[in-house]
Design a binder for these strands. Structure first.
Length: 479
DNA sequence: ATGTGC
């Protein structure tokens, strides 16, 4: 099924399955391929290549694993003129993403207070499955949040206007239309705004452990080993899930109405320019904005807790936002395809935008170095900051990986790993934890994930997102 | 990921 192009690129030829419109391209190496060879995820890469209007290649990042329709770690660009949009190419957790804060603090200052800090954060940042937040949205306030995203949160007193400058799309995707969102989605979303959620969502206090490119790190506000960072990983909670659910039904009907031929029902889609396609994009933008508002509120409470426990103002603590980037989203972007500038719908599902230096869509302060790419690992090992490149623009529509990728399913992890053992392992490594649900400790165990260092080795060597720094956790909040 | 499920 796979043809080796070079050490880090593997092709699924267009002839693999009749109906593929473009070849598949997987960024991986021999070692990583052993993890995925027997899974259905490669079949999903081939299936995505059937989508009407797909251009370039059906792409997969090194952290690819099986998902709904599209693989997680999949990227596909479709022509806006005559191509389709597919909710399965975005995922259930619309605008699941990562946000990184820098601080002036060092490990030495924080370590003695880590337990108090975690305890304060755990109370201040609502977390856990089905958890409700402390924001009370009344009347049509939810619609304003859906229209304005992170800007709503800042206007409501959660964070600083400067935060928006360092958020992808300033934390607000254009074209959001709350009228395209079901009452059910709004009902689920209203009490959950400003909550971390569960599963692999987390808030981590980390220490800079290795610096690969001091110049770029410096531009991002990361100065040295030992510096404290905060990484926040969450999405659009039940709201985005409901939006996805609603539109999968709509798209199921659209596939029949427009006579779209697909190898898998889960790839349900509609022409980008159809009423169904446009409605999904408008609802998806609402969910993206919900997630950005969510991460913005959590940022505010994080600053509050640090300030309270360390007895300094957030400004003195230097808790500036490095960046906030989505890894489950579809975006209308212009890309060079076979020598021509084309407007495409880039589906990034478990894939991070990685725009190069000079791109107008990245913050002015980073224009000379490129977009920060935030890659969470697992709670026992490390996470990375990388940077977007021109090569990513050429080869992957400006995209890269999004994390470690699971090595064991949730159920397999529960069967083979004990939560108590994980707690002991983390304690032995000096990593403090606060968990809403003890069962999630086994599911989220380091052993349930692949080594994110292997993933980053590939994206670095392939040139689509070179490493800038590595950070290790010293305190973890899990939903 | 998610009030784990039609």
């Amino acid at each position: 099924m796979l043809t080796r192009i070079d050490d880090y690129r593997w092709e699924i030829p267009i002839t693999y399955k009749p109906g593929m419109r473009v070849p598949g391209l997987i960024f991986s190496d021999e070692q990583m391929l052993r993890h995925i060879q027997d899974e259905q995820s490669l079949e999903q890469v081939a299936n995505v290549a059937f989508l009407p209007g797909i251009v370039g290649r059906s792409l997969a990042m090194p952290d690819i694993h099986w998902g709904y329709g599209f693989p997680i770690g999949g990227v596909a660009a479709t022509r806006v003129d005559d191509g389709v949009i597919s909710p399965g190419g975005v995922g259930f957790d619309i605008n699941c993403g990562v946000r990184l804060l820098r601080t002036n603090l060092t490990e030495r200052e924080v370590k003695p207070k880590i337990e108090r800090l975690l305890a304060d954060l755990f109370i201040n940042v609502p977390s856990g499955l089905g958890s409700k937040g402390k924001i009370r949205l009344k009347g049509n306030e939810i619609d304003k949040l859906l229209l304005k995203g992170a800007g709503w949160a800042v206007a409501a007193g959660y964070g600083e206007p400067e935060d928006l400058e360092f958020t992808e799309d300033h934390g607000c995707l254009k074209g959001a239309d709350p009228d395209k969102v079901s009452i059910k989605a709004k009902t689920r979303g209203t009490p959950q705004s400003g909550t971390l959620g569960s599963g692999n969502h987390f808030l981590e206090i980390q220490v800079v452990d290795e610096v690969y490119d001091a110049g770029i790190a410096q531009a991002f506000g990361i100065e040295e080993k030992g510096q404290i960072l905060v990484l926040i990983h969450t999405g659009s909670r039940g709201f985005g899930h409901q939006v996805c659910d609603d539109y999968l039904k709509t798209m199921g009907t659209a596939v029949r109405n427009y006579g779209i031929d697909l190898p898998d029902r889960q790839l349900a889609c509609a022409p980008v320019n159809s009423p169904e396609g446009q409605s999904y994009l408008a609802a998806m933008a609402c969910a993206a904005n919900y997630a950005w508002a969510n991460r913005q509120c959590i940022t505010h409470w994080t600053r509050e807790s640090f300030s309270r426990v360390l007895g300094k103002s957030p400004r003195d603590l230097g808790m500036r936002l490095v960046y906030d980037v989505a890894h489950n989203i579809a975006k209308i972007e212009k890309h060079q395809v076979e020598g021509k500038k084309l407007t495409v719908c880039v589906h990034r599902k478990g894939a991070t935008r990685a725009f190069p230096a000079g791109h107008p869509d990245i913050p002015e302060a980073y224009r000379k170095v490129g977009q920060p790419v935030l890659i969470p690992g697992d709670m026992g090992r490390y996470s990375y900051v990388a940077v977007g490149t021109e090569k990513a623009m050429e080869e992957t529509f400006g995209s890269t990986c999004h994390g470690a990728g699971r090595a064991k399913s949730r159920s397999a992890a529960r069967r083979s790993i004990s939560g108590a053992d994980v707690a002991a392992e983390l304690a032995a490594k000096g990593i403090a934890i606060q968990v809403a649900n003890i069962a999630s400790l086994a599911e989220e165990a380091p052993a349930a994930y692949k080594d994110v260092a292997e993933v980053m080795h590939i994206t670095d060597a392939a040139g689509i997102s070179p490493r800038v720094i590595k950070a290790r956790p010293i305190g973890v909040i899990k939903g």
